[in-house]
């Protein structure tokens, strides 16, 4: 009996279930816990309240947009700590080009009432540029992504504060504010997620991204221009942070230098809960979307149960660690197989 005969029938029963199934079950579990607690503590349903769910998803849409970029960075084996600061920087600068002439103290009094495309373009370019700088630093100088993006994190926050001497920038045009109104943030998030889920799975860009994360040396020998590709991936992450900045300030109707603090960590958390491995080469955007929703469920669930914000953070910390522990456990089981 050859080896193959032994393998074949068992492989059928083993037909890999999609990785996301794990995460999906966590999502359902979390939702059910809150549902049960909801009936016990508040005497009402947690899930059967579309308004609550809408608010929940709106809250995390921005995190989700960032997480889509961060997931790709993590798949290459890197990390991006600069997202939150880039959100603030793009929010400040974008808003200054989106102010209405009704407001007397606009930053650029001559550039008020601009068509919405102008601030949009400026914001996206800025995010892209910040990400590209990250990418160039990492691939050309060879410093660890942690350090390069830490530098960007501090510097971009500095730009955000310096730009208007720490003053908030407000009063956007109606058309700009519309970007953040209603369900638009969620629509943008889902479109971005769908686009990159597809890109990672079915394009050369995606295949190369996974290859670099799995083994950068082998990727190089396989003819992949690793440096150039890394710049692309970090630029995409920056672009999405820029987009998140635009959405954030459009929704708030104001831009402040303190915006987006800790967003990078929330985004990393969403990616990791969603099954993206910090050692690179593994992860999917769909998982990250579920991870984002889990984060949102927890935030909204705690509020619903009227649990103190301090406890929320404690539990969130626990969840991050638990997600990675579970991931390690899964990886060990796999490698033993």
């Amino acid at each position: 009996m050859s080896n193959l005969d032994v393998i074949e029938p068992m492989a059928k029963t083993r037909r890999r279930l999609p990785q996301e199934l794990n995460i999906l079950s966590v999502l359902i579990g979390v939702a059910l816990v809150f549902e049960v607690l909801g009936w016990i503590v508040q005497g009402q349903s947690f899930l059967a309240n579309s308004q609550r769910l809408t608010i929940m998803i709106l809250q995390v849409a921005v995190i989700g947009i960032i997480a889509v970029g961060v997931t790709q960075v993590i798949i290459t084996g890197g990390i991006d700590l600069s997202s939150g600061s880039v959100v603030a920087m793009t929010a400040m600068i974008t808003m200054s080009f989106a102010q209405t002439s009704d407001f007397a103290r606009a930053i650029y009094p001559n550039l008020t009432d601009m068509p919405v495309i102008v601030p949009l373009f400026i914001g996206l370019t800025l995010g892209l540029a910040a990400g590209a700088v990250n990418g160039v630093l990492i691939s050309k100088t060879g410093i660890p992504p942690f350090i390069a993006t830490l530098g960007m994190m501090v510097a971009a926050r500095g730009v955000a504060k310096w730009y208007s001497n720490g003053q908030p920038v407000s009063f956007p045009t109606k058309s700009f504010a519309a970007i953040g109104s209603g369900a638009w943030p969620v629509v943008i998030f889902l479109c971005v997620a769908a686009f990159f889920h597809f890109a990672l799975r079915y394009t050369r860009y995606g295949k190369f991204t996974y290859a670099i994360g799995a083994n950068p040396q082998a990727a190089r020998v396989s003819g992949i221009n690793v440096q150039r590709h890394l710049i692309k991936v970090y630029a995409v992450a920056g672009l999405l942070s820029g987009l998140a900045g635009i959405v954030t300030c459009a929704r708030a109707g104001t831009a402040q230098a303190g915006m987006g603090i800790m967003y990078e960590l929330d985004a990393i958390t969403a990616a990791v809960i969603g099954g993206t491995s910090l050692s690179g080469g593994q992860g999917r955007i769909f998982g990250t979307v579920i991870g984002t929703v889990i984060l949102g469920l927890m935030m909204s669930g705690f509020t619903f149960l009227r649990i103190d914000a301090y406890y929320q953070e404690m539990v969130k910390g626990g969840v991050i660690v638990a997600a990675v522990v579970a991931d390690n456990y899964r990886a060990r089981k796999r490698s033993k197989a």
């Binding site: 050369r204 190369f208 082998a218 990727a219 992949i224």
Partner: peptide
């Protein structure tokens, strides 16, 4: 191990990666 395999990836991904530079890709789509 060092310069050949992409260990966490599947046989398919490992096999096709080098060919994707100039074959089987249209408009970036594999």
């Amino acid at each position: 191990k060092d310069t050949g395999c992409f260990l966490p990836l599947t046989v398919r991904e490992n096999m096709q990666i080098a060919a994707l530079h100039d074959q089987h890709v249209r408009l970036g789509l594999v």
